[in-house]
Simulated scan of single mutants.
Amino acid sequence: MHAYLLLFVAIISEVIGSSLLKASNGFKKILPSIGVLIGYAGAFYALSLSLKTLPISVAYAIWAGVGTALTALVGIIIYKEGFNSKKLFGLVLIISGVIFLNIGGAH
């Protein structure tokens, strides 16, 4: 369970870092730029700790898939990016892939 908590921290840190990339305006705004660096550093550190226990195929799939889905939601909610059936379908495919990788990793 501790490994999944670390993975959760890695995901949230990555989503924060990725979301602040847009706000950093190409690293021209200092505070969002610092947030990007801290977010990614925290994400990779927590991910590396979770990999002491979790298989890389499962951990990375969860990290990348959930991180991508949450970052897309941040774009839609905070940055007012459009949302349509194609984006919904893409998010469903990402989440489905994470589920299937976890089912496969359980054996």
Score class of each variant (00 low, 15 high):
residue 1 M to T: 13
residue 1 M to D: 14
residue 3 A to E: 10
residue 7 L to Q: 02
residue 8 F to I: 15
residue 8 F to N: 10
residue 10 A to E: 02
residue 10 A to L: 09
residue 11 I to C: 10
residue 12 I to T: 02
residue 15 V to W: 13
residue 16 I to T: 07
residue 16 I to L: 12
residue 17 G to E: 12
residue 17 G to P: 08
residue 17 G to D: 01
residue 18 S to D: 08
residue 18 S to K: 07
residue 18 S to N: 05
residue 19 S to P: 09
residue 20 L to H: 04
residue 21 L to Y: 11
residue 22 K to N: 05
residue 22 K to S: 07
residue 22 K to C: 09
residue 23 A to P: 11
residue 24 S to D: 02
residue 24 S to A: 11
residue 24 S to P: 05
residue 25 N to V: 07
residue 25 N to M: 14
residue 25 N to H: 12
residue 26 G to W: 00
residue 28 K to L: 10
residue 29 K to A: 13
residue 31 L to R: 12
residue 33 S to R: 02
residue 33 S to C: 02
residue 33 S to P: 02
residue 34 I to V: 15
residue 34 I to N: 06
residue 34 I to F: 09
residue 34 I to G: 10
residue 35 G to Q: 06
residue 35 G to I: 07
residue 36 V to C: 09
residue 37 L to S: 12
residue 39 G to Y: 04
residue 41 A to T: 11
residue 43 A to H: 15
residue 44 F to R: 01
residue 44 F to L: 06
residue 44 F to I: 05
residue 45 Y to R: 03
residue 45 Y to W: 11
residue 45 Y to K: 03
residue 46 A to P: 06
residue 47 L to P: 07
residue 47 L to M: 08
residue 50 S to R: 02
residue 52 K to Y: 13
residue 53 T to I: 13
residue 53 T to H: 10
residue 57 S to C: 08
residue 57 S to H: 09
residue 59 A to L: 03
residue 59 A to Q: 01
residue 59 A to T: 05
residue 59 A to C: 07
residue 60 Y to E: 00
residue 60 Y to T: 00
residue 62 I to A: 10
residue 64 A to M: 12
residue 65 G to N: 05
residue 66 V to L: 12
residue 67 G to W: 09
residue 68 T to N: 12
residue 69 A to I: 01
residue 69 A to P: 02
residue 70 L to V: 11
residue 71 T to G: 05
residue 71 T to L: 10
residue 72 A to T: 14
residue 74 V to E: 04
residue 74 V to P: 05
residue 75 G to S: 01
residue 75 G to N: 00
residue 76 I to Y: 01
residue 76 I to G: 01
residue 76 I to N: 00
residue 76 I to W: 02
residue 76 I to Q: 00
residue 77 I to Y: 03
residue 79 Y to H: 02
residue 79 Y to D: 03
residue 82 G to H: 05
residue 83 F to E: 00
residue 87 K to I: 13
residue 89 F to P: 04
residue 89 F to R: 08
residue 90 G to P: 07
residue 91 L to I: 14
residue 91 L to V: 06
residue 93 L to V: 11
residue 93 L to A: 12
residue 93 L to C: 15
residue 93 L to E: 02
residue 93 L to K: 08
residue 94 I to T: 14
residue 94 I to Y: 09
residue 96 S to I: 10
residue 97 G to D: 11
residue 97 G to I: 03
residue 98 V to M: 03
residue 99 I to G: 06
residue 101 L to P: 10
residue 101 L to T: 11
residue 102 N to R: 14
residue 104 G to K: 15
residue 104 G to P: 11
residue 104 G to M: 15
